[in-house]
């Protein structure tokens, strides 16, 4: 049987088109499945939970909800009266401590003067005793012994006075330490008074303001959230199949769901761990693994942190933590090839 040229041509044309279709289809599939982009990006921001450092009644709240504040602005004020009184008391204590330090100083002078008097007395007695000892032929023994013991007594009194001097010294040091203590108490009272004004630790936006005049604010319990205005970033949840195609430092095109605004960004980190959802701990501390495993395997998604280029954010765009964004990574394959 002879193959007809036309039949061959028909087969060749069809086969060529089918092969091209398979190749292109495969390429598109790979591209669509593995190119690093995701529709699930979230705008996030760092939030400071502002809590007062001292407890007390709230007397003033000069900010309103969602207000923009600068670093150092007063957010709310706690009744300073009690802390002013405490400061006055510590100041009075400081004055008292200073006075007793001065008294201790004066006491030392007195004791030192008394010690020199005792020393002079001893010197005199000692000299007397020595003189009488030298005139042993004319001075009776009793008188000599008396003079000697008088000198001994004077010496003991002098030593006692010296010990009193040491004691007075120690008392003065104690009084000086008490002054330092009182000074520290004053500084602390001043700090407490200063901290009655709760100030913004960063530039940002007041959010969820939950404090009213008359509230009792307790130390350490957060009363409002302050969103750091310079801390906006994006978490892109990329499927694990796409991770090999992105690197830290890759430029990123961000498209916000609100208004379709395009922003520029850069990958600054890939999370190194997510929870294994197949392994919650069940009863008796045993693993609670799913009973079935299907043919279809779902790719896990790993958060990739993206820094937003602040200069690329249009002035009229409102960024809010929690907003949705699409993220398209532009891998630097060309650059990589140059490096290797």
């Amino acid at each position: 049987m002879k193959i007809q040229p036309q039949a061959l041509l028909r087969f060749a044309i069809t086969a060529a088109v089918v092969i091209v279709a398979l190749l292109l289809g495969h390429a598109l599939w790979r591209h669509y499945m593995y190119s690093p982009w995701t529709r699930d990006g979230r705008v996030r921001a760092e939030v400071v939970r502002v809590a007062p450092d001292v407890s007390g009644l709230v007397t003033k709240v000069p900010v309103i909800d969602n207000q923009e504040v600068k670093k150092g602005d007063v957010l709310f004020e706690i009744d300073p009266l009690r802390f002013r009184i405490a400061l006055q008391q510590t100041e009075a204590n400081l004055d008292a401590a200073k006075a007793s330090a001065r008294a201790a100083g004066a006491n030392i002078d007195a004791v030192l003067a008394s010690a020199s008097a005792r020393k002079a007395e001893y010197d005199m007695r000692q000299e007397q005793a020595t003189r009488r000892e030298q005139l042993a032929e004319v001075v009776p023994k009793e008188e000599r012994t008396d003079a000697k013991s008088a000198a001994e007594t004077a010496r003991a009194i002098w030593q006692q006075a010296q010990a009193s001097g040491h004691q007075a010294n120690a008392a003065r040091e104690q009084a000086e330490a008490a002054v330092v203590q009182a000074q520290v108490a004053v500084d602390r009272a001043k700090l407490d008074l200063e901290r009655t004004e709760v100030r913004a630790p960063v530039d940002g936006y007041v959010t969820n303001l939950d404090v009213r005049v008359g509230d009792y604010a307790a130390t350490g319990s957060p009363r409002l959230a302050l969103i750091d205005r310079h801390s906006y970033y994006i978490y892109g949840y990329f499927e694990e199949t796409k991770l090999p195609h992105l690197r830290v430092g890759d430029p990123v095109d961000i498209r916000l769901m609100s208004g379709g605004t395009h922003l520029k960004g850069r990958i600054i980190g890939v999370a190194r761990g997510i929870t294994d959802r197949d392994n919650p701990t069940g009863k008796d501390l045993l693993a609670d693994v799913n009973p079935t495993f299907n043919w279809v395997r779902l790719a896990q998604r790993v958060p990739v942190r993206i820094a937003i280029d602040e200069a690329s954010v249009p002035k009229d765009v409102v960024l809010a933590a929690g907003m949705t964004a699409s993220i398209d990574v532009q891998p630097r394959r060309v650059l990589d090839k140059d490096e290797h």
């Binding site: 069809t14 088109v17 292109l24 598109l28 669509y32």
Partner: peptide, 16 residues
């Protein structure tokens, strides 16, 4: 078969 293949060629080429 030809029509299906032509469709895939078109779709993949435009998509890529």
């Amino acid at each position: 078969l030809f029509r299906v293949a032509v469709f895939f060629v078109l779709f993949s080429a435009v998509g890529l």
